[in-house]
């Protein structure tokens, strides 16, 4: 599970380089997200533009990655491909995460953490 990352202003952008976040890599994904987000600020954007498949284990790992950020931080998602957007919609997890059309849109957005 390769996760690229880049700091843009005060936002940490994490980009999975693999095409799938599934049961085969869910635990690894969660652990790598924990390592990367340890020193991050309030905003972390997960860029899913290269991911074309997320199963329920992968979805659970993304939820876990947000929960382990702790108070005050929220994981935002960007650039969901159609199949991935569908999983979030069908499980109504699209109501839990701030979702942006693109990383640029995420960087331009002022997100409250209320």
């Amino acid at each position: 599970m390769n996760l690229d990352h880049e700091v843009k202003g005060d936002v940490l952008v994490i980009t999975p380089a693999d095409r799938r976040i599934d049961a085969a890599v869910a635990i690894q994904f969660k652990d790598r997200m924990r390592e990367m987000s340890a020193t991050a600020g309030d905003r972390i954007v997960l860029d899913l533009g290269q991911v074309d498949f997320v199963d329920s284990s992968g979805l659970g790992a993304i939820v876990a990655a947000m929960k382990q950020l702790g108070q005050g931080s929220r994981l935002e998602l960007a650039a969901l491909t159609p199949n991935v957007a569908k999983v979030f919609r069908l499980t109504r997890m699209d109501t839990v995460f701030p979702i942006h059309d693109s990383v640029d849109a995420a960087l331009g957005a002022a997100v409250s953490h209320g």
Binding site: G60, K67, L90
Partner: peptide
Amino acid sequence: PHRLDVGMEDLPEGGFGWAL
């Protein structure tokens, strides 16, 4: 379906499979 109107710490991390 899960209840999602809960605090972040209570959000489900699994059990989505049969609903899908």
